Simulated scan of single mutants.
Amino acid sequence: MTAIDVANVSFKYEIYRPNVLHDVSFTVEHNSITGLLGRNGCGKSTLSLLIAGLLHPGEGQVLIDGQHVYENPRIMPTVSYMGDDPCIFDDEKIKETFALWRDTRAAWDDGFAYQLLDMFAISPKKKPNKLSRGQRSAFYATLGMASRCPVTIFDEVHLGMDAVARELFYRTLLEDYTRYPRTILLSSHLIEEIDNLLDHVVFLDQGRVVEMGDVDEVRMRHMLDGRLPNLTEVLMDLTITDEQRSTLGRSAIQ
Rank of each mutant, 00 (worst) to 15 (best):
P124N: 01
L117F: 07
L117C: 09
K130T: 14
F139E: 04
G144P: 09
K126W: 01
S147L: 03
N129R: 15
S132L: 10
P128L: 12
R136T: 13
K126F: 05
L131Y: 02
M145F: 11
F139N: 10
A146K: 09
L117Y: 09
M119D: 02
F139I: 04
R136G: 14
S123L: 15
L117R: 08
A141W: 04
A138H: 00
L117H: 06
S137Q: 15
Y140S: 03
Y140E: 04
M119P: 02
S147Q: 11
S132F: 09
Y140F: 12
S137W: 11
R133F: 08
N129G: 15
S137D: 13
R133S: 03
S137L: 14
L117D: 04
G134Y: 07
I122H: 02
S123W: 14
D118C: 01
G144E: 12
M119V: 05
L143M: 15
G134E: 09
M145A: 09
M119G: 01
K125R: 03
S132K: 06
K127I: 08
K125Y: 05
Y140D: 08
K127W: 06
Q135A: 01
D118Q: 04
S123V: 13
G144R: 11
A146R: 08
R133M: 08
P128M: 14
K130L: 14
K125W: 05
D118H: 06
M119C: 02
A138T: 02
S147C: 10
P124R: 00
N129C: 15
S132M: 11
S147G: 10
K127A: 11
F120H: 12
A138K: 00
S132T: 11
S132G: 08
A146I: 00
K130W: 13
L117V: 05
D118A: 07
I122L: 04
Q135D: 02
Y140Q: 03
S132I: 09
Y140T: 12
Q135S: 01
L131H: 02
R136S: 14
G144D: 07
R136I: 12
G144L: 12
R133E: 06
R133I: 12
A141V: 06
T142F: 00
F120N: 10
Q135H: 04
P124C: 04
F120G: 07
A146S: 09
Y140M: 02
T142Q: 00
L143H: 14
L143Q: 14
T142W: 00
L117P: 06
L143I: 14
K127L: 03
S147H: 11
A138R: 00
K130C: 13
F120V: 13
A121Q: 15
F120K: 10
G134P: 07
S147W: 11
A146C: 06
K130G: 13
S147V: 07
N129Y: 15
F139L: 15
K126E: 03
L143A: 13
D118I: 00
K126I: 02
M145G: 08
G134V: 06
F139C: 08
N129I: 14
K125I: 07
I122G: 02
G134R: 03
S132Q: 05
L131N: 01
